[in-house]
Design a protein around this nucleic acid. Sequence first.
DNA 1: AACGGTATTGTTCATTTGAACGGGCGGTGT
DNA 2: ACACCGCCCGTTCAAATGAACAATACCGTT
Lengths: 316, 316
Amino acid sequence: MAITGDQERLLYKIAKAYYEDGFTQGQIGKRFGISRIKVSRLLQQARQEKLVQITVISPEDSHADLERELESTYGLDEAVVISPSSAEKPVVTAELGPAAVGCLLRCLQGDGVLSVSWGSTLLSVVDAVPVKHWPDMTVVQVMGGLGRPEAEVHGNDIARRMAQAFGARPRLISAPGIVASKMVRDSLLADPQISDTMALSAKSDVAMVGIGVPVPDSVVMQAGAILAEEVEQLKARGAVGDVALRFFDKDGQPIKHEINDRIIGLDLDQIQRIPRVIGVAGGAEKFEVIRAALRGKFINVLVTDDRIAARLLEKP
Amino acid sequence: MAITGDQERLLYKIAKAYYEDGFTQGQIGKRFGISRIKVSRLLQQARQEKLVQITVISPEDSHADLERELESTYGLDEAVVISPSSAEKPVVTAELGPAAVGCLLRCLQGDGVLSVSWGSTLLSVVDAVPVKHWPDMTVVQVMGGLGRPEAEVHGNDIARRMAQAFGARPRLISAPGIVASKMVRDSLLADPQISDTMALSAKSDVAMVGIGVPVPDSVVMQAGAILAEEVEQLKARGAVGDVALRFFDKDGQPIKHEINDRIIGLDLDQIQRIPRVIGVAGGAEKFEVIRAALRGKFINVLVTDDRIAARLLEKP
DNA sequence: AACGGTATTGTTCATTTGAACGGGCGGTGT
DNA sequence: ACACCGCCCGTTCAAATGAACAATACCGTT
């Protein structure tokens, strides 16, 4: 049905009164002698007919639209895209940190439980955290420490330093992330200290995780936590990378491997149940893992660089 | 405080999600990990900072903006401006009719009480009323009939025809609008038939009135209802015209004159108390009266032509 | 380091708004 | 002419929104 000139004028005046003059629909109805609900419907119509146009100005130098596309394509709660000042891996990693912290600060307001995993990217996140004093907050490890027993630093270290920066309580897992056998793991899990911490982690409000690729020079390998042989087995089964040491293939399907039974840390199901999982990763070599992690829906927030973002949107 | 680039990006994404994707503030808050109220405030900010622009497209060939200016300048509920196809008085009058009917139809929905006054302009309104069948509606005269006793047609006639067109109940005042003396009026008012009708008129939902100028050739004068002498007296006291035979000066101040005591019809106070008084008038010679009627706030809806509208806005 | 002022945050509550439902009107076809 | 169908309207109710208030944290100053 075409709108008559008379109708249109009414629509215009009502829309102006509502959107520009700030009258309520009820007031407008009284003024023009029509019911409130009719004003509501006329406004609907005016929007539908594009007589009312609502424009949101996009900020210049930002990837807001790219982010929105990522969000809708992969069903993310939020995507954050940065433009690294260089494509060098350390630079990219270092610049992801502050962006990730921005996300973190927005949803952590002085309390709650934050789980952190491990990785070189997370190191840069820790470095970017501003000093706070949030004694009601808890930072908990999402998995055991990594590295050889005698140098079991990083896993604990990141959580510890994160807690320190926030002025929060640290809850550390005093056990390695990977142990020699299922039996060892089971006996460690019998320790309430450890199992309670893991239970806490499973119920945390926010998790911040890195996304790893099994390359020979990665810190995980260097640390000797995983043997080259095991990596080959995982790759043979389609693994493209991991979140918190849980490997998955390019479609985000978890890989079955006996190593899973030797890990002290949340599994992918548990991670998915955390309300907000922030994944931080960038750099060309991580493209496939990141895409896989998105497909598997292991994270709801992605912090990455613009090249990855562009590639993630290349083909449906 | 300047908005940082980070803030701005968040504002953008929230505004997009709200205005374009139609998410509620609560949903957005959950997605981005902030409280609902904060989303509300950020949206406020975004509107304030003009990151969100709401544009209402003005219809082409219409006087919508002129009307809006009239509405705000004179505190009207509504102004309707038409472009007569010619400046000839009969043409202007004839074309005001349909516009006035448009207003009328919008707020009368099958029931209620409509008061009508009298005048050549109202005649054209009556002619424009589409046939309806609204038996719950009442059309009542706002004042007695006009014209010499033996040709007491118009006043009654307009109300009667209006009622007929609407398929409504007519409530006519079987008395002249102006009588010879206060005494006569008082005795007529003692008749419940008459006083009840006037009481009904005073409580009507909508009134439609013309706005008159005391020119020698006006129908009022021709009808002999008012003597030329009386018109001169009224003019001498500053009268610029009337609504329902109640005269006022150029500032909308009622004129005191003994004729007021001989009128059978609502006074200006009573008219002002009617929730919606639609004044219909156009043509150059009526400019001053119309402005006066607006100043006196005797009407809340004005239907007029574009020339008058423009002149009404000339100077503050 | 203590203080006060300012800004920002969340809570509560009233208002505003839109969705679902049911009734009535007008138009249409037989 | 009558019945049927679809559209439009208002009512009711739940959801969404914004305002007022109080508490808290953060800032600069003394």
